[in-house]
């Protein structure tokens, strides 16, 4: 694809801290290369702001190679921007053309409060994982990988669920701010495997209880989460979460 430069108008959400109200501020950037990543374009803007003596825009990022799940921008009305199966850091400026106006907002959910500008607090996801998104194993030598036979189909489905990077795009996109795709993936990746079997029931019940406690909304099966997920996590995982919860919830005898 041909390399080109562009001038852009950016409307970026600025918010001093969690308590203050925020608003969209307009900025102009010039000579942005189509080869740049979206975050590199933000670096250019921030350099510009620093030179002008203004506060740079706070945004989350870490690996910048699409695997860590830290970047979290809502770009032109879509989580992680216009490209499918893609994170913000892997969105490149060739997705835009000269003269475009780009609106950038943080994830919006009561369970992801804005800390500053585009940075949100996603520790609600961590607390869901702490509620049961793990397997308890005694330490010692690693078991031989082939000692435990696992159906290829289950291994593949578990692996695909495990591709979730926990970025929160599903919550940001869902009109109800539901975390079902995230929790579905995290429950699935373990419940499909024999290692996850002993804690299967308590895991799904505790993780769903924590999800509800955090104030996420309820799933209404619009399937927007699947469409916007940078890792293409399937809504089959939500269905699996539903059936796991149904079986565990009805068979569980504890109060």
């Amino acid at each position: 694809m041909e390399h080109y430069h562009m001038n852009l108008t950016l409307k970026v959400w600025r918010q001093k801290n969690a308590k203050m109200k925020g608003n969209l501020e307009t900025y102009k950037v010039k000579d942005i290369s189509s080869e740049m990543s979206f975050l590199e374009m933000f670096d250019v803007l921030n350099e510009q702001l620093i030179i002008e003596g203004k506060e740079p825009i706070a945004f989350d990022h870490d690996c910048r190679e699409g695997i860590c799940g830290m970047c979290s921008m809502y770009i032109n009305g879509q989580a992680h921007g216009p490209w499918q199966n893609n994170t913000t850091c892997q969105l490149h400026m060739r997705a835009f053309k000269d003269g475009d106006t780009i609106v950038v907002e943080p994830w919006r959910s009561s369970a992801f409060p804005v800390l500053k500008d585009l940075v949100v607090d996603r520790s609600s996801f961590d607390r869901i994982i702490q509620a049961g998104g793990y397997i308890s194993v005694n330490t010692g030598n690693a078991v031989d990988a082939n000692a435990m036979p696992i159906d290829k189909k289950d291994a593949d489905n578990a692996f695909m669920a495990a591709a979730c990077i926990g970025c929160g795009a599903c919550v940001a996109t869902c009109k109800n701010g539901s975390a079902m795709l995230f929790v579905g993936a995290k429950v699935s990746q373990l419940s499909l495997l024999p290692q996850g079997e002993p804690e299967r029931e308590s895991r799904v019940l505790n993780m769903v209880a924590q999800m509800d406690k955090e104030g996420f909304g309820n799933c209404t099966n619009t399937y927007a989460c699947e469409a916007e997920c940078p890792k293409g996590i399937s809504i089959a995982n939500i269905a699996r979460l539903n059936s796991e919860f149904l079986i565990a919830g009805l068979s569980n005898e504890e109060n």
């Binding site: 009305g77 879509q78 919006r108 701010g177």
Partner: peptide, 20 residues
Amino acid sequence: QNNKARPVAYQYNQPSKNSS
């Protein structure tokens, strides 16, 4: 309850890009 899960609405949103 679902409305409460997003107290601040997006200034610009394109839900038609991902759902019916």
